[in-house]
């Protein structure tokens, strides 16, 4: 335990004396200002019109045009739907490549012959629409605070390689477990503080702190462990930085599903940040969803990341020294 603590303190001292740590602090301030002052509370929905030519449909949202050419041109320019009435009375639906079912859904709503009464039942009446700027907080927590260990871990590991500290570690009584736990523990604590400050200044204090801290700690641990395993294969900062940027860009893809929650394909759900971003939304805005699936997902990723990292760091960094 004292070995792990000593390694952690040593890493912390090195971080504090480095410009990168202060850059991260400045980023935190910038994010808080951005969420509270720059991002709008509401984003207006884009006006969506149906264009028609020679059809008998005149709904509120339909705009009539004077020629087929104009219809085609406007559909092309606006990426919208155009209804073209043919001479034989049939309709051609001009669309920018929407799926067959989506086109059919639009036509069905436009040409409905009768209405069936449908009751709406809201499962959680207390749930309210979250302001857009506040809803972005989980995005910044997931893609800035949680990945801090990935970046700091990589930087420290590469500098240890450069300074020759790794060689010294190979002959010192430091096992791979101590090495991983000390670094992961330190970065996870930093990530918890980072994400907590972000949440505190953007959302307030009205959220379950323990669930939040646990999610931040283990979420950051996953990225720290993946980061350490990933960085093991690099020798210089340049290759590492841009490869990392590419990997983290892929990790950011779930933001598409977060922005458009109706779009959640399976391939997006397997990315680790998918579960976490929605779990933060759940915790910070009291959505009332069960956290049990997230616990299993995060635990699974933690164990997997630890085993992979243990193998890679033990085999290729501390044993061989790349």
């Amino acid at each position: 335990m004292s070995g792990i603590l000593a390694l952690g303190i040593q890493d912390f001292k090195r971080l504090m004396t480095n410009a990168l740590f202060w850059v991260i602090t400045a980023t935190l301030v910038l994010i808080i200002v951005l969420i509270n002052l720059a991002l709008p509370k509401n984003i207006s929905e884009e006006d969506y019109h149906i264009l028609i030519y020679q059809t008998d449909h005149y709904a509120d949202q339909a705009i009539s045009v004077s020629s087929e050419e104009e219809l085609r041109q406007k559909v092309k320019e606006n990426g919208t739907i155009g209804l073209l009435g043919n001479d034989d009375g049939s309709i051609t639906v001009l669309n920018p490549g929407l799926s067959e079912k989506t086109v059919h859904a639009i036509i069905t709503m436009l040409y409905r012959s009768s209405n069936i009464d449908i009751n709406i039942e809201r499962l959680n009446e207390s749930n309210k629409t979250i302001p857009f700027n506040k809803r972005m907080t989980p995005v910044f927590i997931c893609f800035e605070a949680l990945i801090i260990g990935f970046i700091l871990g990589g930087v420290l590991l590469l500098s240890e390689k450069e300074e020759g500290t790794i060689r010294a570690m190979r002959i010192a009584p430091i096992g791979v477990d101590k090495y991983l736990i000390s670094k992961t523990g330190l970065f996870s604590i930093i990530a918890v503080l980072y994400s907590f400050l972000m949440a505190l200044f953007c959302i307030g204090f009205n959220f379950p702190v323990l669930s939040f801290a646990l999610l931040s700690f283990f979420g950051a641990a996953i990225f720290s462990l993946i980061g350490l395993a990933f960085t093991t294969f690099f020798k210089d900062m340049s290759s590492w930085f841009f490869s990392m940027a590419l990997l983290l860009s892929i990790n950011m893809l779930p933001v598409v599903a977060y922005s458009e929650p109706s779009f959640s394909p399976l391939w997006l759900r397997v990315i680790p940040s998918y579960s976490m971003i929605f779990a933060y939304e759940n915790i910070l805005f009291g959505m009332g969803r069960s956290l049990i699936p997230v616990v299993f997902t995060v635990a699974g990723w933690c164990i997997g990341a630890y085993l992979v990292s243990r193998f890679v760091v033990g085999r290729y960094l501390l044993a061989e020294g790349r």
């Binding site: 320019e77 990426g79 073209l84 049939s90 051609t92 639906v93 001009l94 669309n95 920018p96």
Partner: peptide, 9 residues
């Protein structure tokens, strides 16, 4: 109805 895809902007 029939559908036609128009490559848009």
């Amino acid at each position: 109805y029939t559908t036609e895809t128009v490559e848009g902007q």
